[in-house]
Amino acid sequence: MDANRADYYIEGIESSKFLLENMEGYFGFHANILEIGCNVGRNLNYLFQAGYQNLSGVEISNYATELLKKTYLKLECKATIYNSPVEEVITTLPENGYMIWFTQWQS
């Protein structure tokens, strides 16, 4: 499906805006946040730009994670990005280690 291509995912920010609007007031900037299926990291970068600091993402696509590194340099230095299937990563994460986790959706 073309809508899920990593390079297309960089552009639209409507779902990232929606995510941020619905998090504000509920979670502080130090909340541990995990996005499962983060693709190129657009949602994580949007949260990072808003001031959230403890961000992690899981993405199975090597291409998407390489594009994340090129597109969002500051995020890549600060966030923890797991380039593996979620089934492998989730078993290594601390129980109750994240205040919020979510999966990507398209806008």
Score class of each variant (00 low, 15 high):
residue 74 K to T: 11
residue 89 V to D: 02
residue 77 C to E: 12
residue 36 I to Q: 06
residue 61 S to G: 04
residue 51 G to Q: 06
residue 57 G to S: 09
residue 72 Y to I: 08
residue 67 L to G: 01
residue 52 Y to A: 04
residue 71 T to M: 07
residue 74 K to H: 10
residue 87 E to V: 13
residue 39 N to K: 08
residue 58 V to L: 10
residue 43 N to D: 11
residue 81 I to G: 02
residue 36 I to M: 08
residue 48 F to G: 01
residue 75 L to K: 00
residue 52 Y to D: 01
residue 90 I to A: 13
residue 91 T to A: 12
residue 90 I to V: 14
residue 47 L to M: 06
residue 85 P to T: 05
residue 92 T to R: 11
residue 62 N to K: 13
residue 62 N to E: 13
residue 72 Y to W: 15
residue 81 I to N: 01
residue 48 F to P: 00
residue 92 T to M: 12
residue 52 Y to L: 07
residue 63 Y to E: 12
residue 46 Y to V: 09
residue 39 N to V: 08
residue 84 S to P: 11
residue 51 G to C: 08
residue 76 E to A: 14
residue 41 G to D: 00
residue 90 I to K: 09
residue 72 Y to T: 05
residue 88 E to H: 13
residue 55 L to V: 04
residue 85 P to H: 07
residue 51 G to Y: 08
residue 68 L to G: 01
residue 60 I to K: 05
residue 49 Q to M: 15
residue 36 I to C: 09
residue 93 L to H: 05
residue 64 A to E: 00
residue 91 T to I: 12
residue 85 P to N: 05
residue 47 L to P: 00
residue 41 G to H: 01
residue 47 L to S: 03
residue 45 N to K: 01
residue 57 G to R: 04
residue 78 K to V: 12
residue 76 E to C: 13
residue 73 L to Y: 13
residue 74 K to F: 15
residue 63 Y to K: 15
residue 73 L to W: 14
residue 48 F to L: 03
residue 55 L to Q: 01
residue 37 G to A: 12
residue 81 I to F: 10
residue 45 N to S: 00
residue 59 E to D: 09
residue 41 G to W: 00
residue 42 R to A: 06
residue 62 N to T: 13
residue 41 G to T: 00
residue 45 N to H: 00
residue 60 I to E: 02
residue 64 A to P: 01
residue 92 T to H: 11
residue 43 N to H: 12
residue 93 L to T: 03
residue 47 L to C: 04
residue 58 V to Q: 04
residue 49 Q to T: 13
residue 85 P to Q: 05
residue 51 G to E: 03
residue 74 K to I: 11
residue 79 A to Y: 06
residue 53 Q to P: 07
residue 74 K to G: 10
residue 42 R to I: 06
residue 48 F to T: 00
residue 80 T to G: 09
residue 54 N to H: 10
residue 75 L to T: 01
residue 43 N to G: 10
residue 44 L to Y: 03
residue 44 L to M: 05
residue 66 E to G: 11
residue 66 E to Y: 12
residue 54 N to M: 10
residue 88 E to S: 11
residue 48 F to W: 05
residue 67 L to T: 02
residue 84 S to A: 15
residue 88 E to F: 15
residue 91 T to P: 05
residue 80 T to K: 14
residue 41 G to P: 01
residue 83 N to W: 11
residue 92 T to L: 10
residue 42 R to F: 10
residue 61 S to A: 06
residue 40 V to T: 02
residue 81 I to V: 12
residue 50 A to S: 08
residue 54 N to F: 15
residue 56 S to A: 05
residue 76 E to P: 09
residue 41 G to V: 00
residue 90 I to Y: 14
residue 79 A to P: 04
residue 56 S to K: 02
residue 81 I to D: 02
residue 84 S to N: 13
residue 62 N to L: 15
residue 76 E to Q: 15
residue 81 I to P: 02
residue 93 L to Q: 04
residue 72 Y to R: 07
residue 69 K to M: 09
residue 78 K to A: 15
residue 53 Q to S: 11
residue 39 N to Q: 06
residue 72 Y to A: 07
residue 46 Y to C: 08
residue 50 A to R: 05
residue 90 I to S: 10
residue 90 I to M: 14
residue 54 N to Q: 09
residue 77 C to T: 14
residue 48 F to K: 01
residue 82 Y to Q: 03
residue 86 V to A: 10
residue 49 Q to D: 15
residue 66 E to T: 12
residue 69 K to I: 09
residue 53 Q to R: 12
